Computed example of a mutant assay.
Amino acid sequence: MAMEQITVKGMRCQHCVKSVTQALEALDGIGKVKVDLESGVVMYETGKPVDKATVRKAITDVGFEVVNT
């Protein structure tokens, strides 16, 4: 499994963390998700290639902004 990292802007609470985590875990190929609320860093494991645009869309669909990928 590969580990990927992105930075997300706008997360302020544990509900935000849960929303992002669930959005990413629902994507095919993504396993464990770890969110650092303070820094906005989201790390996730991929079992197969996952398009960065798909990850970005999943996060923006739940109301957050991807700062970088």
Rank of each mutant, 00 (worst) to 15 (best):
Y44R: 09
V50S: 15
V33W: 06
K9A: 04
F64M: 02
C13I: 03
M11D: 02
I59T: 04
M43W: 01
K34M: 02
V42N: 00
D61T: 06
R56P: 01
H15R: 12
V41D: 12
L24I: 01
T7V: 12
S39T: 13
P49W: 12
G31C: 14
C16I: 08
T21L: 00
G29C: 00
H15A: 10
R56W: 00
I6Y: 11
V50G: 14
V35K: 11
A23K: 09
C16L: 09
T69F: 13
Q22T: 14
M1Q: 08
V8R: 00
T21Q: 08
G40I: 03
L27S: 10
L27H: 01
V17S: 09
K57V: 00
P49S: 13
L24V: 04
G10F: 00
N68M: 10
V41Y: 08
R12W: 10
V41I: 10
T54N: 06
I30H: 04
M43Q: 15
V41C: 03
G29Y: 02
V8Y: 02
D36F: 14
G47K: 11
T7H: 09
K57W: 04
R56K: 15
M1D: 12
A58G: 00
G10C: 07
D61H: 07
V66Y: 03
L24C: 07
G29K: 11
V20T: 06
V67I: 11
F64H: 05
T60G: 01
K48F: 13
K52V: 10
E65Y: 02
C13L: 09
R56E: 03
C13V: 06
E38K: 06
A26M: 05
T60N: 00
V17A: 09
H15D: 09
I30N: 11
M3H: 07
V42R: 00
N68P: 05
K52G: 10
K52D: 07
M11E: 06
E45Q: 13
P49A: 10
T21C: 03
V55S: 03
G40E: 04
